[in-house]
Design a protein around this nucleic acid. Structure first.
Lengths: 230, 230
DNA sequence: CGGTTCTTGATTGTATACAATAGTTCGTCG
DNA sequence: CGACGAACTATTGTATACAATCAAGAACCG
């Protein structure tokens, strides 16, 4: 059970970042990408050795991810990756629509102009699709929505959406393993950015509603037909 | 620095509850009620001794509360109680309205009938007002909204609202120290419960919007005139 | 004196060690 | 042969101990 610490990896991060900070990011990413499967037990000793740390910062990271809803922890029983079903997808997208609608309205009131970075990401996304790097694609997608949230200038909204995107990204990763990514989403993004820049909150929300409904339904049909686990 | 552990307090809780679980609740309550002031440093050794535990479960509890937005933690610097200003009140109520509106619509779709427990709480609230137990009053208020959230049958929405209520309760506690509690809120609650029971989501949301706007404005004016810290 | 480096004390970060719990296996008895 | 229960094992929960970091003040130099 003695761990051979990965000395190199530790010092590649900026100095004042603690093991906890790095662990939260790494563990989250591992769960999002499906390296740890839904329902799988997360045994502390194993994880600690895998990440080259002791159980102390690891436990703190698990508590954090519990707060984000990525893992479930029961006393004296340990942590598992939270399993998600079709109802979770529906529920998540409901909450997401409510929060992001608010974000768009506030961003539109301030005439936030995100057209330039959105176009840039659109180009990046094309390249990511060609090279087949799904992970990068999802991060670009999230970045767009995160930037919209930031434009709302509401710290509590940003925090709430940040937590929810962990879950959304899990769903997306699972979907992209079996489904196909339609570049149309980036046209949607640009239309939304346009509406916000012109201060038209109603239009932006309408576009977002269609955008999310399409995405959700595509995911749900894939889930039903291929029966992929989340 | 040696702690004389409060042996009695430990076993008064249900057996399989860990020190972490108890700490989260106790620490949250202490922050909500203002026992630890906004901006105040939360030194781990001091807290550990005060609560009769070691720093390990304490640190985990702090991570949890960080996730709820009650404390801010910076690496190697420690935790402080997150200070809230007038803008936070506006932002919080914005997010709250978005989330609770969704909850009411879903609850109304299901014709959830919460009129009986709401009336019961109304009576309890009268007694709480007479006996001047503000803390109990706030908990009753939260319970109403929590039950509405639960009636939405959306686990992710419930979780999101649960986290937010920590913050809302902080604002309410601070407000009630200087402001007055108007029993009219319970008439609002009953009207909302009625609308939901009749399946009228639009009406329920309209009532909620007025309810929250009134509450928010009352808090804001109190803050501005008396300049109370949150 | 004003600014800069060094030292020190307080505090956080993390590893190790041990205690407590729950799940499991195996034996016993009906 | 199955139900019950007692050891055993794997794993979590928590305390202690020590290392790393930061903030503040002292010493130093211009």
């Amino acid at each position: 059970m003695k761990a051979v610490y990965n000395l190199m990896a530790i010092e590649l991060r900026r100095p004042s970042e603690t093991r906890y900070d790095a662990l939260v990011d790494d563990l989250r990413e591992a769960i999002l990408t499906g390296r740890y499967r839904p329902g799988e037990r997360l045994v502390q000793d194993e994880l600690a050795e895998a990440f080259g740390v002791s159980r102390i910062p690891l436990r703190e990271a698990l508590r954090r991810l519990e707060g984000e809803g990525l893992v479930l922890i029961s006393p004296n029983r340990g942590a598992i990756v939270r399993p998600l079903g079709p109802k979770d997808v529906v529920d998540l997208y409901d909450v997401r629509l409510a929060l992001e609608s608010l974000a768009l309205r506030r961003a539109a009131e301030r005439y936030a102009d995100l057209r330039e970075p959105t176009a840039r990401r659109h180009a990046d996304a094309r390249r990511a699709i060609e090279s087949g790097s799904l992970g990068a694609l999802i991060h670009l997608d999230r970045d767009f929505h995160a930037e919209m949230a930031a434009a709302s200038d509401n710290a509590h909204l940003i925090a709430a959406l940040g937590g929810h995107w962990s879950q959304i990204m899990r769903v997306m990763h699972a979907f992209l393993k079996v489904g196909t990514y339609t570049p149309a989403v980036w046209a949607d993004h640009e239309a939304i950015a346009d509406a916000v820049a012109h201060g038209d909150g109603d239009l932006a929300v309408g576009l977002l509603t269609a955008h999310l409904t399409n995405a959700r339904d595509a995911i749900l049909t894939q889930l039903r037909t291929k029966g992929e686990k989340l």
